[in-house]
Design a binder for these strands. Structure first.
Lengths: 205, 205
DNA sequence: AGAAATATCCTCTAAAAGCATGATTTTTCA
DNA sequence: TGAAAAATCATGCTTTTAGAGGATATTTCT
């Protein structure tokens, strides 16, 4: 019995690459592919799948959200995050949402096969070569942000000043400022530049 | 006579994808692949290549720089930029550096073949479906930054204040401030938050 | 119902950033 | 070698941020 795999990625090249990489491996069957979350969910409703490879950046909803949905609706499907070296920081979120591991897209064939084996056996898989040709940052986890903090962060990123944000959100400037201070605290930075850089790196804005 | 192609990308998946996509096309031969700029240059020194597909984000130097180098050392090699939807803004730089066009990685097989045909015929190729499932921003071009401005931008992104940057660069605070103002002007923004967000989106930091 | 988390508001101070205007020196390159 | 571009510095002013300290509603969840 082959391991049935669903690949979800919006880049045909990645789909093709993974498919061709897995095609000639015995015991592995690429059951289908999807280029967005809707397609992925639809496919899972009508097909049996063992492992789903989820790209983290999808056109409709993020792979993180998709992972959550899949785990809710199809708990038996194991998920593997597919991330580029830029998106590693997402990975912890994925794991929190039930993913069985992640692969960076620069993984070689052996790593991919190893990941499938591990996950199919009920284990976890993570690329270990963390800080090679990529961000030297210790890949921080995303701080937990409240609804309001996210809103404020977004508006800051859009270039609004505190007074403008206050107007937008119908609150006082001091409130906005408090949220701002909390953001700086949670991200452990001391100014807007660092805040936005980090948030951008984490894909939050 | 087949069109000889070199693919330069640090993601094995993309390499595989392109290779398998082009493998069964007559008149096209994937002469080789490289996962970084050094390998690419080395390959070109010893092999004949018609078209080089260049990923924009490479581990050593950017595809943009690589494009320039290739054009200098191997003027007969035509280059095609490979970009993800996030990196479109780089494209104009590529073109300025002599690229014959660009492909977004979400291109389908037909588009890729069409691109090869066009470029081989001495023409240019650009994906036209610009603003579909991607950034709603009008995909700005990267403003031309001077050496010093890039340095300052980087230090700002690292969270340094003007006085700290001045100390780092052994110049006065007013100088740093001037560079900062110029950055804001060139990016057409009015504060650090927007600046960093834009710069991060363009992959500059 | 009650604790905990979240959101809201306040004052005050100092530091930093943003904006305008102008000028000199150094590099770069045609 | 000259013109253009880049880098340097200055002054003065306004707005915004950063930081500290505290306070009161409002949700949320057990």
């Amino acid at each position: 019995m082959s391991v049935k795999i669903l690949i979800v990625d919006d880049h045909p090249l990645v789909l093709e690459g993974l498919k061709s990489l897995l095609a000639d491996c015995e015991g592995i069957l690429v059951a289908g592919t999807a280029s967005n979350a809707i397609e992925a969910i639809a496919f899972l409703k009508t097909n049996e799948v063992d492992i789903a490879f989820l790209d983290i950046s999808l056109p409709d909803i993020s792979g993180i959200e998709l992972c959550k949905k899949i785990k809710e609706q199809f708990p038996s499907v194991k998920t593997l995050a597919l991330s580029t070296f830029n998106e590693r920081s997402y990975v912890s979120r994925m794991i929190q949402n039930g993913a069985s591991g992640y692969l960076i897209k620069s993984s070689g064939k052996e790593e991919i096969l190893e990941a499938i084996r591990q996950v199919q056996a009920g284990g976890y898989f993570m690329n270990v070569n963390f800080d090679q040709a990529s961000s030297p940052a210790p890949s921080k986890t995303i701080p937990f942000l409240t609804r309001r903090e996210k809103e404020v962060l977004l508006l800051i990123a859009e270039g609004l000043t505190n007074p403008q944000i206050a107007e937008q959100l119908f609150v006082s400037v001091t409130t906005v400022n408090t949220h701002r201070q909390n953001l700086l605290m949670k991200f452990e930075v001391s100014n807007t530049a660092s805040l936005i850089k980090l948030a951008a790196g984490l894909g939050l804005i």
